[in-house]
Write a protein that binds this DNA or RNA. Structure first.
Lengths: 144, 144
DNA sequence: GTATATGCAAATCTTTTGCACCCCT
DNA sequence: AGGGGTGCAAAAGATTTGCATATAC
């Protein structure tokens, strides 16, 4: 228990942040979540500590800027955040249009396309961001 | 001049909308724009007619739902809209991180990936949405 | 004439910010 | 002790909505 929280405190100090209770708790919640979470979802999950929503936002922004978290945009009005488990591990997500479930996708062959785009548009330093949407297995059963 | 506006009026009536002045003007602005526009950008461009921003939003949402416009999400806080020139013409966009310029991308080989994802995740009916970001030629010159 | 669309104002929702106080280090 | 971090409240910015009036058909 204590050692688990130490892990987050150490991670914070390594990135020149003070290891405060709100930050440790937020990291714990994100580490344990199987999918990226919105600020509001995180705020609910840490409600036992009465952490202010503004603190959640400030923490998420700072940790994402420092590279401790990934900021995930899925094309709706929310920014989501996920614990970065492997440094720079490149992946994408698929979100269920019906229930909002999000699953990680590890296939990606867009780098070849990027060089074609560079050639045709003159853009350089091309990054990409992909979101898949669909209907998850559970929701497919409900509908039919 | 009149015939050009007739084109939008006809398009509106074909989709069971009344051909009002605000709607015709909004369609004209989007048709003439080389890139997708935000509600606020459209509102500025139609400022000669004193169209309310709420009307712009309502028009954009209805026309996008009806399939007359494409709703474009580029991972920032704005929804953008583009005139649909060819029915269901599938494409993506690249946006310059420096000046915000948006260019259309017509390459897309993600359909093959979609079937792999279906196999590994159980999701069905998979759509995708891709945003490329980079530095456009003009901005690359400025920086160097 | 009637249903629909618009303008105006107010509300909603996510996210940010100012400021006084608190607590890591 | 000192400076960053937090809570609280208010603000900001995109988008939506209620309602009375205006307009297309």
């Amino acid at each position: 228990m204590v050692s688990a929280l130490q892990k987050y405190a150490t991670l914070l100090r390594q990135n020149e942040f003070k290891a405060t209770q709100p930050r440790v708790k937020i990291l714990e919640v994100l580490d344990k979540s199987p999918q990226p979470l919105t600020a509001s979802e995180i705020h609910e999950k840490v409600s036992t500590l009465d952490i202010d929503l503004a603190t959640v936002y400030r923490t998420l922004n700072k940790l994402a800027d420092a590279g401790v978290l990934n900021r995930v945009e899925l094309g709706d009005e929310f920014s989501r955040f996920e614990y970065k488990r492997v440094a720079n591990h490149h992946h994408h997500h698929i979100i269920c249009d019906s229930c909002g479930k999000i699953v990680e996708i590890n296939l990606c062959n867009l780098d070849a396309i990027a060089s074609d785009i560079a050639k045709s548009t003159g853009f350089t330093n091309i990054q990409h961001q992909v979101v898949f949407r669909g209907c998850c297995e559970r929701c497919a059963l409900k509908v039919s």
